[in-house]
Amino acid sequence: MTKATTIKGGKFRVLIGDDATPIGYSAPCGFTQRSITLNKGLNEVNVPDCDDPDKVDWLGRDATSLSMTIAGEGVLAAESVETWLDAFDSIDSIPVKVEWEFPAKTITWTGAMHLESVEAGAANAGRATLNVSMQSDGEMVRTVTPVTP
Rank of each mutant, 00 (worst) to 15 (best):
V141Y: 08
S117K: 04
N39T: 14
E101A: 15
T143I: 10
E119V: 08
G111Q: 00
E116R: 05
E99L: 11
D52P: 01
S67E: 08
M134W: 08
E79I: 04
T6E: 11
T108S: 09
V45E: 15
D89M: 03
M68C: 07
D89V: 00
K3G: 12
A104W: 01
S80L: 05
T108P: 03
S117E: 05
A120M: 08
P48D: 14
V14E: 03
G111H: 02
V14F: 15
M1H: 13
E116S: 09
V81C: 04
K55T: 07
L85F: 00
C29T: 15
D92L: 05
E101W: 07
P103F: 09
I91A: 08
A128H: 03
D51F: 14
T129W: 04
P28D: 11
R13L: 15
V98W: 01
H114D: 05
G41N: 14
E101Q: 14
S133A: 05
P28M: 13
T83A: 08
V147N: 10
P28A: 11
L38H: 13
L85S: 01
G111T: 01
E79F: 04
M140H: 01
R34G: 13
F88R: 02
A71G: 08
A20D: 13
D62H: 13
G17W: 07
T129R: 04
E139P: 04
A128P: 08
T69C: 02
L76D: 12
I91T: 05
I16V: 15
K97P: 01
L15C: 13
D89T: 01
K8N: 14
I94N: 03
S133Y: 00
V147F: 14
C29M: 14
G126H: 06
A123E: 10
P146G: 08
W58Q: 03
L76P: 01
F12T: 12
D52S: 06
G121C: 03
I107D: 00
N124K: 08
P103W: 09
D62E: 14
V118K: 01
G72H: 06
D86Q: 04
E99W: 06
P103S: 10
R142Y: 05
A63L: 12
R34Y: 08
M68R: 02
K105M: 06
G30P: 07
S93Y: 04
Q33Y: 08
G121L: 04
N43M: 15
E79R: 07
T32A: 14
G72Y: 07
L38W: 10
E101D: 11
V141L: 13
R34T: 12
S117P: 00
P22F: 11
V132C: 05
P22E: 07
H114Q: 01
D92I: 00
T64W: 09
I36E: 03
I7K: 11
D18F: 09
E119P: 00
I7H: 04
G24I: 13
L115S: 00
T143K: 10
G60T: 01
D49Y: 09
D54Y: 10
W109N: 00
A78R: 10
T148Q: 15
A20H: 12
L42T: 14
V132F: 02
